[in-house]
Computed example of a mutant assay.
Amino acid sequence: MTAESAAGPGTRPISGRAGCSAARSGAPGARRRCRPARPSAAAARLADGPKPADAEATASGMRTRRTARRHARRAFMESSLTASGQSKPPTPTTEKRRDVMHRPASGTSLHPWFRQVRNCRAPRLRLICFPHAGGSAGFFRSWAGLVPDDVELLAVRYPGREDRFAEPPAQRMEELAEPIAQACAKLTGSPLVFFGHSMGASVAFEVAARLAAAPVATGLEALFVSGRPGPEKLRSRNLADASDEELVEELVAMSGTNAEVLANPELRELFLPLIRTDYRLLDAYEAAVPPPTLAVPVVAYYGDQDEHVDEDAVNAWSAVTRSSFATRSFPGGHFYLEQHAAPLVADLFACLDTNAPHLDQG
């Protein structure tokens, strides 16, 4: 990939190497009865037993609360914060069918780490997308209509969310990078391209580094990273230990979609422990210095109003490749790609099609 290949508006090419459970746990203390107490009016009414209307209202309220909890849990499993602006997520049946459909070409087998967002019987390449902290494979649902017809789009399924909700989330980067790298090694027959946003950028890089160190080449063609400083510029923000109020404020500031989800107490109760776990993983993550170098082109994207990822931070990704490197900014903050998914995907494939003509061989 040459410096001119990734050129475009805003592009700066660089060539060469350049708790709720705690709240419920308090049990009322035992009552001491020193003398008979005068029954209250409420107690007197209860002594006669609940009136039919009262009993019906109580049962109805309990049913309503149980239904709300079920709906909140289902909504959390079907989607996650900043779920790419989808107005109505698919039903669980649709999501399950989408997973079961995945029968990759060239003898590769179905694997629980990937969701097939867009099927292609004989793809010229596979684009694998890595979600952000607290995110899920569903974040890339809207990309299905943006990629070319001859591309298979896969999204990584982190444990602890959507249809892997019952599994414990990863505590260390190795718990994600190593099994995902093993799964990618089985995707033969078509070149691979990685795109990772925020935490997903680090996960994608660690997977790429493991594939590069493997004794057998795996066909990775390019790495696209987004909204994340390069390995040598990473700094811990200690968000995992922030209060609920501070954490919610931070999440809402990053994306308007977060505000809608976090306004629901049931969803907030489910989501905050997960995002804390992801942030704790990032706080503990220490990339190798100097980072391992890849032999594939690297392109770094970022929002020009992102308070924590600036041009200097994304330029640090140039140290991870012996091939070409370029950056491009888009208007917006950390989740700029919510508003600019179409031009982002178009730019990604323009880079690939212009600078990797062998990918067109099918």
Rank of each mutant, 00 (worst) to 15 (best):
D353Q: 15
K96S: 05
H71E: 11
E167K: 15
A53M: 06
R65N: 00
S243D: 13
Y279K: 04
E78W: 01
A44M: 06
A346S: 06
E245D: 10
R276L: 10
G303F: 15
Y301P: 03
E249W: 09
E221H: 06
A217F: 02
A316G: 04
E232D: 14
E221M: 03
T58F: 12
A166C: 03
V320Q: 03
L281R: 09
P9N: 09
N315P: 03
G227S: 15
L110Q: 13
F139Y: 12
E246H: 07
Q182C: 12
R98H: 08
M254A: 00
A47K: 03
E246K: 09
G256E: 08
A201H: 09
G19R: 04
G16D: 13
A183E: 09
Y158Q: 06
I14Y: 15
R65H: 06
F114I: 02
R97E: 09
K51C: 02
D304M: 10
V252R: 05
V203H: 11
S198Y: 15
E286P: 00
G303M: 10
R228T: 07
S109Y: 02
L81K: 00
A201C: 09
S21G: 02
D283V: 11
P191E: 09
P168T: 12
P50V: 02
A133K: 01
V314I: 14
A253Y: 04
E95A: 08
G256L: 08
K96G: 13
T354R: 05
E250D: 04
R228V: 07
S25C: 05
P52H: 07
G303H: 05
A18M: 03
P179Q: 10
F349L: 10
E95D: 01
N315R: 15
R38L: 05
E206Q: 14
A59I: 12
A222Y: 14
V225K: 08
P148H: 09
P292A: 11
S25G: 03
P131V: 06
R115A: 07
E250P: 01
H308A: 07
T277L: 12
C129W: 06
A166V: 15
W317I: 08
G362A: 11
G227P: 14
A209N: 04
L352K: 04
S226D: 05
R97P: 01
G219Y: 15
H334N: 08
D283S: 08
R24S: 13
A41T: 02
L337E: 12
T327W: 11
A288K: 03
D306E: 09
G19T: 03
A137C: 13
A122P: 00
S60F: 01
Y285C: 05
P229W: 15
E174G: 15
S226K: 03
D306C: 15
S87R: 08
F165N: 01
M199C: 10
R35E: 10
A356S: 07
R228Q: 11
A342R: 04
Q339G: 04
G332R: 01
A185P: 08
A253H: 04
R66P: 00
T94D: 08
D163M: 15
P159K: 08
T218L: 05
S190W: 03
N238R: 11
L352E: 11
E260C: 07
D304F: 12
